[in-house]
């Protein structure tokens, strides 16, 4: 790739060790994040988008664990950092916004203080100075009356405002990468557009790269430079956004695109492809999508396809494209 890569995820594997067996929630995912770009990660519910993000942040909890692969942030391998070293990276060089704006803030502290804490943890500034910066970032993320809002508790803010606070918290230390896990899924459509525009603007101004997790292809088309399509813990297709929409290759991606909601109706979850997502504990022997694929051949049921290069920046995990480029 031409640009410099700030975050390089290579062959990441995270498994959940449950009583019923090992669930490969993230199964060999590689994602490259170039500086200052927005990377979209899409896929149906349960395909492993959040767990990929959590693995990168080192936030997986028991029974989940990263079992393989490397994560390189700005040339530094952060896969095996100690708790102490990791805490210096988290919230500072890489930050995350979560799927649940209503519950992601601590109910017993004013929101301003919670953001200020992120600054005080990573930078040597006085409390007063840190507060100044919080007010500044609140203004930047479009929170009205930031000085007053600083002292508000989460329950006094709407979902949209809370998510802005979260974005402020994630951006306040000017991280190299910000992971936004469905930041707008819980919000209504007009707020969604505002928040997406805001993230794009901040990303351009501060040079922060964003991994935007979503299940909404419309959102992808609007803001992402590059897209990864995930299914059952694997990347099925990856391409630049225009390329993906112009030359959609994987049957699964086509299914997802057919289900783009109109702008005024908001899809909370995608369930428009025939069939159900397979149980991670009982994946098909061949291609994980074969049970739902209308184009599946005999081979698809017994052999696992690799990611095949089909264009300069375009890869597809489907036998149809084997040996193409």
């Amino acid at each position: 790739m031409r640009e410099s890569i700030v975050l390089d995820i290579k062959d990441l594997k995270s498994h959940f060790f449950t009583a019923k067996g090992v669930a490969p929630a993230v199964d060999g995912v590689s994602i490259q994040v170039p500086a200052g770009k927005i990377i979209g990660v899409v896929g149906e519910s349960g395909c492993g988008k959040s767990m990929t993000a959590m693995s990168v942040m080192g936030l997986l909890r028991y029974p989940g664990r990263v079992v393989g692969g490397t994560i390189t942030l700005d040339g530094r391998d952060i896969t095996h950092l100690s708790a102490k070293e990791l805490s210096k990276v988290r919230g500072n060089e890489i930050s995350m916004i979560f799927q649940e704006p209503m519950t992601s803030l601590n109910p017993v502290y004013p929101v301003g203080k919670q953001v200020r804490e992120a600054i005080l943890l990573h930078q040597k500034v006085s409390k007063a100075e840190a507060k100044e910066r919080v007010v500044e970032i609140f203004r930047a993320v479009g929170i009205p009356e930031p000085e007053k809002r600083y002292y508000n508790y989460p329950h006094q803010l709407s979902g949209g405002l809370r998510q802005r606070v979260m974005i402020g918290m994630a951006m306040v230390c000017r991280p190299k990468v910000m992971i936004a896990d469905e930041p707008t899924t819980a919000l209504d459509v007009t707020i969604e557009a505002q928040i997406l525009r805001l993230m794009k603007k901040l990303c351009e101004e501060q040079g922060t790269s964003i991994i935007l997790i979503t299940h909404n292809m419309g959102v992808v088309a609007e803001v992402c430079d590059y897209v990864y399509v995930m299914y059952a813990g694997k990347v099925m297709e990856q391409a630049e956004t225009f390329e993906l929409f112009d030359h959609t290759s994987h049957p699964y991606t086509r299914g997802l695109l057919n289900s783009i909601p109109r702008l005024d109706e908001k899809a909370r979850r995608l369930h428009t492809i025939e069939g159900v997502v397979p149980n991670l504990l009982h994946l098909p022997e061949g291609c994980s999508f074969c049970t739902r694929c209308s184009e599946a051949k005999k081979r698809c049921f017994v052999e696992r396809p690799d990611l095949y290069q089909v264009g300069e920046e375009h890869k597809v995990r489907c036998f149809q494209y084997e040996g193409e480029a």
């Binding site: 942040m57 936030l59 708790a83 102490k84 805490s87 210096k88 990276v89 988290r90 919230g91 500072n92 930050s95 995350m96 979560f98 649940e100 519950t103 992601s104 803030l105 601590n106 109910p107 017993v108 502290y109 919670q114 804490e117 992120a118 943890l121 990573h122 979260m166 918290m169």
Partner: peptide, 28 residues
Amino acid sequence: NDYIRTARAKGLREHGVIVGHALKNAML
């Protein structure tokens, strides 16, 4: 709770998460 994950994500160490964010809620 989700806000515990947020506290970890912003770079707090585990004891900081417990003392700073979990305890007050748990002790109410």
